[in-house]
Design a protein around this nucleic acid. Structure first.
Lengths: 127, 127
DNA sequence: AGGTCTGTTATACTTTAAATATAACAAGTG
DNA sequence: CACTTGTTATATTTAAAGTATAACAGACCT
């Protein structure tokens, strides 16, 4: 797999795993219908515990990015041409808010923030 | 004070305090030169421990929003007409990135995200 | 000068989250 | 039938969050 985990970072390793899997979907290394490795095999791959991977998978399920079929496996959801749910939009807004507030307080103009946002989005898709 | 802390939330109470103080600066309830209450008095006010408030203040100092003068107190920095530092910009970008990635994966178009961002910024300033 | 308030530092403790370690179960798959 | 799957349960370790006291030294005020 294309996952690199760094223990000792300020971000928990299960969150790192979540972020990198979301990233992989954004970059289309993973796409709707693809299956994720079993929690056991991925845990072995990454040198971490089964339950840690399991926690990451359930986090991804909460986010609506994968579905978990008990006794079978985890599958990436097909979200193309599907409207984002109100709940997920609300959650993202709530998490993004304090960061935007901080940017404003530190002196960024709305236009600067929009430019930064656009640049990051391009990088996510392109890089 | 205009601070409301909710224990039992998934966000640590020292982070809640940080967020609400940043928010107060954004809304200009607090502005450059204003002093924050002492860690002891604010802790008593909010029914929390001195060290928890202290932790929040130091977090705000790392963010560049206040300065702490030992044996004296905490003062809001004057950041108007001051360029954001490269370090802070880098940190904000790094934290905002996974949220934007998630939005993309959940089907939002770049334009949608920009609109959402603009709306939140307006709300921060206006509300 | 004296007393109070300040942030700082240190120590100790409790509680919660993160992470690991095993083990067993029941259902899907070949 | 044998194997793999996610699930569940229990136990343990480590780190973070939060509280509780106490003492210190400089600032501040009368």
């Amino acid at each position: 797999m294309f996952i690199k985990i760094e223990p000792g970072l300020d971000l928990p390793i299960y969150s790192q795993l979540v972020n990198q899997l979301v990233d992989a979907v954004a970059r289309k290394k993973l796409t709707g219908g693809d299956t994720l490795p079993s929690v056991r095999s991925l845990a072995a791959d990454l040198g971490m515990n089964m339950h840690t991977v399991n926690k990451a998978y359930h986090e991804l399920e909460k986010k609506g990015i994968i579905r978990i079929v008990p006794k079978s496996g985890a599958i990436i959801n097909d979200l193309t041409q599907l409207e984002i749910s109100e709940i997920q939009l609300e959650r993202i807004s709530l998490e993004i808010r304090p960061l935007l507030t901080e940017a404003i307080v530190l002196g960024m103009e709305p236009a600067d923030i929009i430019n930064l946002t656009s640049a990051i989005i391009s990088d996510i898709k392109g890089g």
